[in-house]
């Protein structure tokens, strides 16, 4: 079995809604049925086959090739499996995610991991504004830079960063630490194609928040790459 692969054939003029293309929703569908899935909720919405070449058969591992920032809602409400995005992706990546793993080799846009409850999202590139907004739990890693309002209204969960972003006053500095659970987390990363595997030291600056919203989430910034 090879990964189910969606290769973008042409750059879409408008945003495409990819929320239907998750391992849990595609399980038990034939390739023909997958090709017929609409890419928005509008009337006369474009179908998967209009924009993507669909190959492979393992729906537990989904690849998006030639991906661009026009692809929104990748991994939305995902519960199981793995999604690998070769390229960039649009807004709401992994929003409401309930489990599984998303790897993005390029950059992600705004509202990455919005209301995410469980699972792992790792971005090799940069991410936009409101990263991890309203996050309930889970783990998000952004190797590059971040936009504004990171962790806005996050309740729990962990955000792994390599650079300190501009933080709200409701994100509190808890000092520099060597956290034992990171050894387990990074051991789990070793099977994944992510830039986080290049991080040598598990020493982190810990910020807790959002204190306006329970404050049990955390932002961990690695002191050296």
């Amino acid at each position: 079995m090879s990964a189910l692969t969606f290769t973008l054939k042409k750059s879409p003029a408008s945003k495409l809604d990819c929320r239907q293309l998750t391992p849990n929703l595609l399980a038990n569908l034939t390739i023909a049925e997958i090709k017929n899935i609409p890419l928005s909720s509008q009337k006369n919405a474009p179908k998967v086959a209009d924009f993507f070449e669909v190959t492979g058969d393992d729906v537990q591992t989904i690849h998006f090739n030639n991906a661009t920032a026009q692809l929104d809602y990748i991994g939305h409400h995902m519960t199981i499996g793995t999604i690998v995005v070769e390229g960039d992706c649009g807004d709401y990546l992994g929003a409401n995610m309930q489990g599984g793993t998303i790897i993005v080799k390029g950059c992600a846009n705004d509202r990455l991991g919005d209301q995410m409850r469980r699972g792992l999202i790792l971005i090799d590139g940069n991410a936009g504004d409101y990263c991890a907004s309203r996050m309930i739990a889970g783990t998000i890693g952004v190797y590059g830079t971040l936009g504004k309002h990171v962790g806005f209204a996050m309740k729990r969960g962990t955000i792994l960063l390599t650079q300190t972003p501009k933080l709200h006053a409701t994100m509190q500095n808890c000092g520099t630490h060597t956290l034992p659970f990171l050894a387990l987390l990074f051991r789990a990363f070793t099977t994944l194609p992510t830039m986080f595997n290049t991080i040598q030291s598990h020493r982190v600056q810990r910020y807790a928040g959002d204190l306006a919203c329970d404050g049990r989430g955390e932002i961990l910034v690695f002191s050296s790459r």
Binding site: R118, A137, T139, L184, E218
Partner: peptide, 14 residues
């Protein structure tokens, strides 16, 4: 102040 982490399907407590 305890937090949990689910890593590879196994739940840990910090």
């Amino acid at each position: 102040y305890q937090t949990s982490k689910l890593i590879n399907g196994i739940r840990y407590w910090r």
